[in-house]
Simulated scan of single mutants.
Amino acid sequence: MRKLIGTVFRKEMKDHLRDRRSVTSALAGPLIGPVIFAVMFTVMASWFREGKPLEVSIIGRENAPSLMAFLQRQGATLADAPADYEAQIQAGKLDAVLIIPSDYGKDFSSGHTASVQLVVDNSRNQARSTVRRLTSLLQGYSGMLGAERLFARGVAPELATPVRVDEVDLATPERMAANVLNIIPIFLVFAAFMGGMNVAIDAMAGERERGSLEPLLLNPVHRGAVVTGKWLTTVVLACVAIGVCLGAFLLAVKSVPLQDLGVKARFDAAAVLGMLATVVPLAFFASAGQMLVSTYARSFKEAQTYIQLLLLLPMLPGMLLAVSPIQSQLWMYIVPVFGQQLLIGEVMRGQAVGPIPFLLGVVGCAAAAAGCLMLTTRLLAEERIIFGRA
């Protein structure tokens, strides 16, 4: 039996490695995630980079000389706002405009609350860093003046703050990075499905459409050996795609200036091995499921349609975990796809999960893969499947 499986496996590997376009597309697909990650986070880092000077456009600078002096001491560069400042803010040419009304000095001198206006467009993500820094400076200036006014009247400034909250953040750099880099588990799981997709379709639906499946089954080879050999070929390419995707992500994490976003991502050998141990078992289930679908489909094109819809499966749990954090339960790790994405997130956060979640993930994927392979073997015993009849 092992010899027969090895023979089918070698035959399938030779056939698929000859098709360089198919192999190239199978390996290029998993690179989509790292490329998107590198571009997106590089752009975001340029928006939120704290080192660049704060440029503030102002209307009515002469109405608040002390505020202007304070902003300049904090390193802000002041400029007069143009007449069409609203249009320029909406067009993205200005991040924000500070308006000092003419009655600001009167209210300020009389000890009343002096109002200013900050004109922004909150729909523009790239302006948020400037708005956040400017708002922080204005709040700091207001707090400083409030304390000085209380002190001048003989009142201790502490009386205005009866309770002070000091936040103690227990989050490690790995956990903070995992919250920001939550797209990595989604694309790693996606690579497990993407890598062997073309091989699974061609190995079953493609061979049947070319008329080469029937002669293969006429040989004295057990149908289970045929299915297993083809499945192992699909698994190998899926695992290669996972390795390519993970390697590209590691390069992207090192090259992207994540520190400008306040993120310190550190993927050591233990984290990399943990992610591989989590995702590789999923390749066994993904390949078996794709072979089952391509065997059931009546044509190559129909198999492509079904499996492309199947690619939505790894996206759904990742999106659910991103928008609605779930407290992990032990039974969740045995659920294929969902358990893998949950476990990768915990590995990236540096949590000590122990061996049981990894073992449950392997058991869940192995059981699901075995079920798919058994159903695929049974389908090959039906005439309507072998000859493509409706």
Rank of each mutant, 00 (worst) to 15 (best):
1 M>H: 10
5 I>M: 14
5 I>G: 06
7 T>N: 11
9 F>D: 11
12 E>D: 04
19 D>V: 09
22 S>P: 08
23 V>D: 00
25 S>E: 09
27 L>M: 15
27 L>P: 12
28 A>S: 12
29 G>V: 10
36 I>R: 05
37 F>T: 00
38 A>H: 04
39 V>H: 10
46 S>I: 08
52 K>L: 11
53 P>C: 05
58 I>T: 05
60 G>C: 01
62 E>T: 13
69 A>I: 04
69 A>W: 04
71 L>D: 02
74 Q>S: 12
82 P>Y: 10
87 A>R: 06
98 L>W: 00
98 L>H: 00
99 I>N: 02
103 D>T: 02
111 G>D: 01
112 H>G: 08
114 A>L: 04
115 S>R: 14
116 V>S: 01
124 R>Y: 08
125 N>K: 07
129 S>L: 00
131 V>C: 07
131 V>D: 08
137 L>D: 00
143 G>N: 12
143 G>R: 08
145 L>S: 00
146 G>V: 00
147 A>D: 14
150 L>Q: 02
150 L>E: 01
156 A>C: 04
158 E>T: 11
159 L>T: 10
159 L>N: 04
160 A>F: 03
170 L>H: 11
174 E>C: 07
175 R>F: 08
183 I>L: 15
186 I>D: 02
191 A>M: 08
193 F>D: 03
194 M>S: 15
195 G>P: 13
196 G>I: 10
198 N>C: 05
198 N>F: 15
200 A>Y: 05
201 I>W: 11
204 M>S: 03
205 A>W: 05
212 S>N: 09
212 S>I: 09
214 E>V: 03
218 L>V: 13
218 L>C: 13
223 R>I: 12
223 R>W: 06
225 A>L: 03
229 G>L: 12
229 G>S: 09
230 K>M: 03
239 C>D: 15
243 G>F: 15
244 V>I: 15
245 C>R: 12
248 A>V: 03
258 L>S: 07
259 Q>I: 09
262 G>N: 06
266 R>K: 10
266 R>W: 07
271 A>P: 09
276 L>I: 12
279 V>R: 02
279 V>Y: 02
279 V>N: 01
281 P>T: 00
283 A>M: 14
292 L>P: 08
292 L>I: 05
296 Y>E: 05
297 A>Q: 07
302 E>S: 11
308 Q>L: 14
308 Q>I: 11
316 L>V: 14
317 P>D: 10
323 V>Y: 14
324 S>I: 11
324 S>P: 04
326 I>W: 06
330 L>W: 10
332 M>R: 01
335 V>T: 10
340 Q>R: 14
341 Q>H: 10
342 L>H: 07
344 I>A: 07
345 G>S: 07
351 Q>N: 15
353 V>N: 01
356 I>T: 13
356 I>L: 15
359 L>Q: 02
364 G>H: 11
369 A>N: 09
372 C>K: 05
379 L>K: 05
382 E>W: 07
383 E>G: 01
387 F>L: 15
387 F>I: 09
388 G>R: 02
